[in-house]
Design a binder for these strands. Sequence first.
DNA 1: CATGAAAGCGCC
DNA 2: AAAGGGCGCTTTCATG
Length: 626
Amino acid sequence: MEYITSIKEIGKFQKELGISSILSVDTETTGLDVWMDSLLLLQVKTYDETFVFDCEKLGENNISYIVSLIESSGKLVLFHNAKFDLKFLKQKTGVMIHNVYDTMLAEILIYQGVNGENKFPSLYQVVEKYCGVKLNKEVRESFYKDFKGVTQEQIIYAVEDVAYLEKVREKQLAEINRTKQEKVLELEMKLVPVVSDMELNGILLDKAVWLQLSDISKDNREKSSVDLYEKIWQDIISVSTQKTALELFDLLKVQVKTKKDKALFESITDLDTIKEYFLERFNLNSPSQIFALLTNIYGIKDLPSTNEKDLVKLVPKYPIIADIVSYRGLSKSVTSFGENYFEYINPATGRIHTTLNQLRADTGRFSSSSPNLQNIKRESEYRNAFVAEKGYKLISCDYSQQEYRLCGSITKEPAIIQAYKSGMDMHTMTASKVFHVEPYQVTKEQRNKAKGYNFGILYGANKFGLSYALGCTVDEADEIITAFFAGYPVLSKVKNMIVNLVWKNKYSSTLLGRKRFFENQTMFSDDKELQKYRRKLEKEGFNHVVQGSGADVTKLALCKIYYENPFGSDLKLVLTVHDEIICEAKEEIALQAKDFMIKCMEEVEQEFLGEIPALAEGRISSCWEH
DNA sequence: CATGAAAGCGCC
DNA sequence: AAAGGGCGCTTTCATG
């Protein structure tokens, strides 16, 4: 072990760097915040030596030099959870490391789908699993608490953190090869610097615009609430036979917890006073109270739930339900898309830096959290609140019907292929099949309906599920499904083949070879349970093939845009939303940048589409337009 | 008072 | 009897 505190001691490191083909790297920092916290140690294991660089003693310039030596060496660099270290090193030194292997991500690929709650396997876990060694966890934490200079103990354990990564990688590669995920592994590793870059870039939110939206929603929620309480109260007094406040609260499932309250409410019989307490205690946000209200006051029988889909069916008979649904929407706007977003504006950059998890979803899709920027409301007012820096533009490009094109390519269904080749799409073709008309005769309304059929049937809805989703009868849904599969005989056949294979193999595979594994459950209480489990695997498996292939395509596109970017820092990736990629670009190059993005996206998609033409569309604006 | 499950709903 | 895939966030409610 070499503990390095002066740049004069760098000679041995350079020599070791030259003769090593693989490096293992880790950092110790004062905390998790890339902008607020600082680097303490940088550990680099070469072929037969481990160097511990003291970042405080060496200073930023020297650390930058060391990191640039690593990056320019082109050697493969092993990390566990590379994104964290990459972001820190890039932020502190200006250098991004690109040729990386992440033992955490590789481990997720090996267990994709069957890792249960353990979505982020720790270094401790993989080292124990593959090397039979238990690392000391406590010392790692000592960097965060009362840090006063590096201790001998900390240095020893810092070395341990990079000691086992090569062995872990070797064993993981055997599993990756066994499951034929070499291409997916390569893609995910290439993607790590891209994702790190996107998180560091962040996106700008126009506070004033957002606040205005929030205030409007708040106002409307308040009005809606007052109005709704009054209507409900009028209906209560017209039907209720309850004598006391307590009886009413029991009926409405309003919790009365203390004995004191219980006694109080039992004694209240005056209507005006009951109303006062009703306004105070009845909670419009409580599904259980709304359920009790609809059941016990409005007399609705067999209400399956109070979710929107079940409620809207009853609007014609019970107009109050429209108000409840409307209140819910406003409440959602306020609580989920309101001032809470301001907490996520980074004080150092003034931007929102979401966390993008490249392997959190079992299908291979990205997820986004803190905040989730993949579920911003589609209403243009909300997306338009995300803006470009002065002198820049936001470029949003999305794939046109990515999953339906992939579905056509995966199943080789001639009707779908023909539709896209002739400039039509699957929705129109499905409408033609289901409504038994020629494609050119399909009306807008029919096409719209067919959209719902495509989504539902493709992802495994049966006649019951489809009738529920569409709000039609089971017989009607049955007819639609029959016409769908009769119209797409090849899709029907291939889909059956795929789901049978999923059941047999207990995994599914995307076009790039990304796997989703399923538990091999063998114990079932009865045949019904077995069939239920089989249907679940078939649905999730087929969905994975399509949705996961979509994820493959978008991830390949992100890499292509990042690695082949001819505009340097004038073009930055800022976000991805499944089939959409958003960049921020200098105004002067925005037009060319959009063309470049579209070209990258279409090229990688075309590789998977065969005869079906790839298509991506883009918009340039001072804000996020979608 | 903390924690976790469940319901509900925003997006693709 | 039967209820479409994938997420994350907020709220309520039960539990310890």
